[in-house]
């Protein structure tokens, strides 16, 4: 197993064991665990496989296929990590946007942690291309406003909170369910709250099918990924395909 694999296993599987996930992951960080010199394709494959997703095909080259207009990206009222009320549409236009709904305590290996790894991989790869500076945006919207306050998401965002990345990654939440629910429904992101079968009390686990939305600069959804089709290589090429539509020349 490569160091990359070891890292991903730590990131994805350990939540199932409880609090050990955090301590082991932190240990990895503090001891300076490095990532093996894997190619982008290898990284993509390892990410998907460690999440239990098999993508046994080679993605098409960017620009060699068409991404159809699925529907307009819905708008709504959100909070940024500073607690400021914003329109979601501020984050879905002007750039190619990759948007997902997450909650910070999600531990489904094929859910939010998987999306996080994919986003992180994409941010790194896209930032390696100077021509794409300011052309792509990543957005994570929490569907747990009760726990994912702006303060929590600021921590979750890490260095992204400073807004100094060539590919910005925004973390958003909502002030209330009243603001959140219409957004979820409009995007078609189903979320169910788990109930303890014995006590019938809600538990802090939310059942959802991971969905990630690729949105063009004109606020139009052009692709929707679930875990079974969310591979970093696939999404990367789709992003480049939309950028090529905008006339951006790739190196």
């Amino acid at each position: 197993m490569s160091k990359l694999s070891a890292y991903i296993v730590g990131a994805l599987r350990l939540p199932l064991r409880g609090g050990g996930f955090f301590s082991v992951l932190m240990t990895l960080v503090l001891t300076g665990a490095s990532i093996a010199n894997a190619s982008d394709g290898d990284q993509s494959k390892e990410i998907t496989e460690q999440a239990g997703v098999i993508m046994d095909f080679k993605p098409h080259p960017p620009g060699s296929y068409k991404l159809y207009a699925i529907k307009p990206a819905p708008d709504g009222k959100v909070l940024d990590i500073n607690g400021k009320t914003r329109a979601l549409s501020e984050f879905t236009g002007g750039k190619v946007t990759l948007l997902s709904f997450i909650y910070s305590s999600c531990a489904d290996p094929a859910g939010c942690p998987y999306a996080y790894l994919v986003f992180h991989n994409l941010q790194s790869r896209l930032q390696a291309l100077p021509a794409l500076k300011g052309k792509v945006r990543l957005v994570s919207v929490s569907f747990d406003p009760e726990h994912d306050t702006p303060e929590v998401l600021k921590l979750y965002a890490g260095d992204n909170a400073h807004g100094n990345h060539d590919v910005q990654w925004d973390f958003l939440t909502t002030a209330s369910l009243r603001d959140l629910v219409p957004i979820l429904d409009a995007y078609g992101q189903d979320v169910y709250v788990g109930v303890d079968p014995v006590t019938l009390k809600p538990i802090n686990a939310k059942s959802h099918v991971l969905k990630v939305f690729l949105i063009d600069p004109n606020h139009v959804i052009r692709e929707i990924y679930t875990a079974s089709y969310l591979g970093p290589d696939v999404v990367y090429n789709d992003i480049l395909t939309l950028l090529m539509e905008e006339g951006i020349k790739l190196p």
Binding site: F22, L25, L28, D40, S105, A128, L155, G158
Partner: peptide, 17 residues
């Protein structure tokens, strides 16, 4: 990142939880 994973951001995120 130079096409590598950065653990730092993820660590910050999970440390919040």
């Amino acid at each position: 990142c130079n096409n590598r994973f950065s653990l730092k951001a993820l660590a910050a995120a999970v440390s919040a939880t």
